[in-house]
Amino acid sequence: MSSPALVRHPEDGMPTASIAEAGPVPAVTPAAAPTSFGALMLRWYRLNQGRLRATAIGIISLLAFLLVWHLLTTYRVVFFVRFTNVPSPLAVYASFVKAIHDPKFLMHVLLSCRRIFFGFSLAAIVGVPLGLIMGRFKLVHEIIFPVAEVLRPIPAIAWVPMAIMLWPTNEQSIVYITFLGSFFPILVNTLHGMSLVDPVLVRAAQCLGARERSIFREVYFPASLPHIFTGLTVGMGVAWVSLIAAEMISGQYGIGYFTWEAYSLVQYADIALGMIAIGVLGLGSSLLIRGAGQLVMPWRST
């Protein structure tokens, strides 16, 4: 039984080659023959036909929305809903052109973004690790979960008076409200992800010599990542909701305040501009999170 190391003796037993042949053979793409540019374009078109169609329909439906809006406002339709004072798309566009040359508008946008950045980042920095630890250690879960369950149903807006009392500056209380809004979705989804980690994967790691800390880093954390990112996406949405409400009530700057102020000052076009700006910013920030998710979880993009 003194067989030498097998690396040097691939011929004994079943040859390596036969193992390789035994399994499914990798699909080898044949060296592509040089094709003309036109043929390439045609192939690209065929492969992306579905996506192109979706894009085209999306653009058409957006244009139709603008057209309906335009017609409703130019003819000042009153049919249960009153469009008499609603600004037309052209009026909103005019105020948009004016706004982008106005440093005050840009400051409103930047301030809102900064509040989202701080509030949301804090929520992620606290919520994700806390969820991971609560998911792993029963005692921590038992201590923190009841408190979280009591606080969770309170809408962030209901926190506004309390936040103003708690924090010395207006800025801090608004960031705090934003933090609260995104914190609970992040925490709950991280917890959910932890509860769904396949125990067989943990066993597999243990059999390969992994200790507690490595299992946490190499199994629990990556296994929970998809749910963590769901939490971040939902949290980002709620962060914007909370921010705008807080700005409307207690702000002096910010896009929410801008929108509310426009109403007080009877600048109706600016109301719509503020709303659209909020929508675009919300969309942009959730796209950022989705992009980050694809970057962090390359195994999920097929």
Partner: peptide, 20 residues
């Protein structure tokens, strides 16, 4: 006394780490 790398295990559900 507990799992260890001295005893390798193969599972029916493969249990490969999907993120690796």
């Amino acid at each position: 006394n507990g799992p260890s790398a001295e005893r390798g295990m193969v599972f029916q559900q493969y249990s490969l780490f999907p993120w690796k």
